[in-house]
Design a protein around this nucleic acid. Structure first.
Lengths: 224, 224
DNA sequence: GCAGCAAAAACGTGATCACAAATGCCCATG
DNA sequence: CATGGGCATTTGTGATCACGTTTTTGCTGC
């Protein structure tokens, strides 16, 4: 049965709603998994495996992987194999410095725009983080922690800066998972309370210090 | 003539030396063209056109484009069409702030490692920039200007930071071309002399100010 | 029991094709 | 002469395939 046509298995997929393209679905799925620490460092991935998992062919999987490699979320060996990165200590320190640089600036820009509703929302997220800590759920901890930061930085009205920031988070995703595993019992993030307090007081130097401390805190002891 | 095999037109391409993959060749070629301002803003590209130009099929062209879109070097419309970005004034200001943030830090880190040979090399590059200005060669000007900055920042030993910096340059490439066209007669970059002087004197505050000024200078009047 | 080599399975790469949507063009109509 | 609708062309998307390379497996010999 020499079928000549490439047998369009799902041509009638109606692209029903705002469902974007297949490679975007794969990209977003992998990106969230990596950023939230669902994958350990040096975890290998294959194009065919990704395609099977997301029920697409190799082509969209390849595009998604290529994009993630470009963002530093995945590392590609010389033979083309891809895996989550296993960062050196120097790299971790550099990315932590980058986080400090970007996030201090973002927080500083968000400060004049921060009103009560935002602060209350941040406190709610802090509560959710405490729950994740209590349940020893690393992924939930990382996810809500990033949500805390992103909620604040969204007020900065600086999309390019926030995008760069998220790229750094993405690169640190697997490492943060390993970090959480190393110190399994974490205290609830008390620097987050300092951030909220500084926002409330309109204290910019205090905010900058609190953000810098929160960002540097965890990564320090991993690299040390 | 129902040829079943996809007729491997160039299967004997011996991947002769360290010639990397085809999509990497396309990626690097497009990246340099964009970063150096060879393409104006809102310049449309097609996958088949890229493939024709680089003598590859659509597949590597697509991967390269996807990567450049991920880095912000190209913009993809909802219909999948790609073009160089046409940045809004807010975006330009934000990217300029990002340049200032990153490059001041990189220069500061490079300062203690800067020795005489580096300073001499920077002065040589400055001479080449003056030539480009004299010849009214926008592409050469942008290229050598970026070479000046990269040469300095390489001493910072911070690859992740430098990579982010180059991503910003990439996003600004077409815009910088338009900027150069707008002010066709540019004075030679006197902030570069201030950078070299501060490096020579070991003056860190002066270096930070000079870099910030140099980076902000041109982009200010474009956005204003 | 272990080291090493060969066979085999799996992988990435790049090319081609079918299809749907979007773009552009041209002519007919007001 | 301007404008709108319909057709042809172009474009991106995703699937499949062949091929060379890499990785893993399994077996043999020491």
């Amino acid at each position: 049965m020499p079928m000549q046509t490439p047998v369009p298995l799902s041509p009638a997929s109606p692209r029903s709603e705002n469902t974007s393209s297949a490679h975007d679905k794969v990209y977003r799925g992998l990106r969230i998994r990596i950023m939230h620490g669902e994958l350990p460092p040096a975890h290998a991935l294959t194009l065919r495996g990704i395609g099977r998992e997301f029920d697409v062919s190799m082509t969209p999987a390849r595009e998604a992987v290529q994009r993630l490699v470009a963002e530093g979320a995945l590392f590609m060996s010389s033979s083309g194999r891809v895996a989550t990165p296993e960062l050196s200590n120097e790299r971790i320190e550099e990315l932590a410095a980058l986080r400090a640089l970007l996030e201090v600036e973002l927080a500083s820009r968000a400060l004049p725009r921060a009103h009560m509703a935002l602060i209350e929302r941040l406190q709610t997220i802090n509560g959710t983080i405490a729950e994740a800590v209590a349940h020893k759920d690393a992924v939930a901890y990382i996810r809500t922690n990033l949500e805390f930061h992103r909620t604040l930085y969204l007020r900065a009205q600086a999309p390019a800066m926030l995008a760069m920031c998220e790229t750094v988070w993405l690169q640190l995703g697997p490492t943060m998972r390993a970090l959480y595993g190393r110190l399994q019992r974490t205290e609830l993030p008390h620097f987050h309370r300092a951030i909220v307090a500084a926002l409330h007081a309109g204290d910019e130097p205090g905010l900058r210090l609190a953000v810098r401390s929160d960002v540097t805190q965890g990564l320090k002891l991993l690299a040390g």
